[in-house]
Amino acid sequence: MGILEVKGVRKTFGGVIANSDISLSVPEGKIIGLIGPNGSGKTTLFNSIVGYHPIDGGSIRFLAREISRLRVPQIARLGLIRTFQQTRIYGKMSCLQNMQISVPQTLQRWGLVMNKIPAEDTERAEGLLEFVGLYAKRHLFAGDLSFGQQKLLEFAMALMIRPRMLLLDEPTAGINPTLINALISRLRRVSTELGITLLVIEHNMRVIMDLAEYIYCLAHGELLAEGKPETIQNDQRVVDAYLGAH
C-alpha cells in the first residue's frame, strides 16, 4: 500500500478525455517519475490529485484516506503539496516573507495569527533559502527574481511547509544546465534526509532517468507503460509516443 494510491481515475473536459482509467501507486519515501508527450494528461492528473477539479470516476487515496472529494486547501493541509508548471510565488512579497507564510496551516496555529512571526520560522526559512541558493536575495520582491530563481523559491516554499509528499510539475524547466545537477542532488537529499515522497513530472529525460526509481508514462490520456527507468527507456511504445509514431 503506497502513500498515494490512484485507481482508475477518469477526467473529461467536454468531449476530450484527459485521463482515462489511470492507476498508479507511490510508495512512501520513493521518487517516482511521470512522463509523457505534451498534452498526454500529466498536469490534469496532478490537478485531479490535489483537488483542483472533481474527477469523473475512480478513487484517489492519500495516507489511506479518500481525498477525491476534498477541496484544495484541505488536501494541502494533509501534507500533499504541489508546485506549478508556470511557477507561482507571491510576487509583491519578499522572498523571506514568501517562506514565512508557507508554514503548516493547522488551526492550532490560529493563535499565532495575531502574533509576530516566530523566530524559529524565520531561521528555518533562511536555512532553506540558503539550501536553494537564494539567501542573499531574501529581501528582494519574489516577483523580481528570474524564472529559474522563482522555481527554486517555490521549491523551498514547498519544503518549508514540511509536507509528507511533493508533486513537482517540471522542476527543472527554465533552470540552467549547471544548476540542474545541483537541483537533482537537492531533490535526492529531500527524499533521503527529510523522507519526503516525490512524484515528479519531467520532460528532461536525462534528469528523470537519473532521479526516479520507478516511472509511469502517459500518452493520449492513458497509462502507456510503467517500470524501472531502464525498462521505460527501452520500451518501443514509449519511444514511439515521444517521436510521434502511432
Binding site: 484544495v72 494541502a76 503539496i81 506549478f84 510576487g91 507564510i101 496551516q105
Partner: peptide, 27 residues
C-alpha cells in the same frame, strides 16, 4: 500590529496569488 504578523502576510499572499495560497493550505 496585524500587518506585522501572520495575518498581514496571509492577506498579502491572497492578494498576490490566491490559488497558490489555497494550494499551500491557507484558510
Amino acid at each position: 500590529w496585524l500587518y506585522a504578523g501572520r495575518f498581514g502576510l496571509t492577506i498579502n499572499a491572497i492578494r498576490d496569488d490566491e490559488d497558490k495560497a489555497e494550494a499551500m493550505g491557507i484558510h
